[in-house]
Design a protein around this nucleic acid. Sequence first.
DNA 1: AGTCGAATTTAGCATTGGCTAAACCTCTGT
DNA 2: ACAGAGGTTTAGCCAATGCTAAATTCGACT
Lengths: 145, 145
Amino acid sequence: MAGKTRQSKAKLQSAAFRRTRSDHSKELAADYVELIADLIDERGSARGTDVALRLGVANATVVKMLKRLQDMGLVTQEPYRPIALTGEGWEMAETGRKKHQIVERFLLALGVGEETARIDSEGIEHHVSDETLRAMGRFLARQIS
Amino acid sequence: MAGKTRQSKAKLQSAAFRRTRSDHSKELAADYVELIADLIDERGSARGTDVALRLGVANATVVKMLKRLQDMGLVTQEPYRPIALTGEGWEMAETGRKKHQIVERFLLALGVGEETARIDSEGIEHHVSDETLRAMGRFLARQIS
DNA sequence: AGTCGAATTTAGCATTGGCTAAACCTCTGT
DNA sequence: ACAGAGGTTTAGCCAATGCTAAATTCGACT
């Protein structure tokens, strides 16, 4: 009995872990893209320094990351120019913002303080499936009525 | 006006991001430790291969990681012997399990399916503050009554 | 127009977390 | 007693994400 049970359990669990881990790089990309979108909306343009400052990271790190984002087709950039998002980049930013908003509002509705809701939603956002997001949406809808 | 507002916003946000990122290595450690605890409870001992299988990772990776966990004072191990947890390791595992359980039960109570609850709780677990955890606990308590 | 300061990029390095392949132990069964 | 299977470790590699320091470019102000 042990054999089969063991194996299937392992397979199930490893899938969950693998997914959690493989998401890290996508998370980072999403954070950058979302932030860039925010900066463009707030101030008309996004510069490397602003991104570095807000992410708490060195300028050089941002440059390197932007290259990767460019390879992923999320941003475009000419040297020494502000950062622009591609269509795909905007889409990703929009999706992320919606997700973020739902999670944050959900936490607030749950009775969590503002500061904590802000911080936790940042961390949670990328690990919430669409199904869970819908459940949060339903909860919010119920609360409002 | 822009100057000051900008800076304080940046500081707040970078703190949140930095925290999210710096947690990654702790998360990983917690995953390993929790899994080792589970294996010991389920089968009496935890071997490297089991850990590798469940985490979906190569044996060599586990060995390397175990060295780091040993340096962190979470596990002890003699070569070619099964893995043991230190007191601190057990504590961490226990804390993690409690957290995990609350999050998973919370998601289920929210109406999320079993499979998704399992996967999402794995990802969310490490990003949930104590405050949010308490809010989830309150929600569960309300649901039961 | 020329210069200086600020932003950007490049270069080179470190750490983390992965992998494969090969060498090495342990234990079990004959 | 020992051979072989299976678990463990070592060695050496790679990619991602950070950093600092130095070089470069841009733009604004005499």
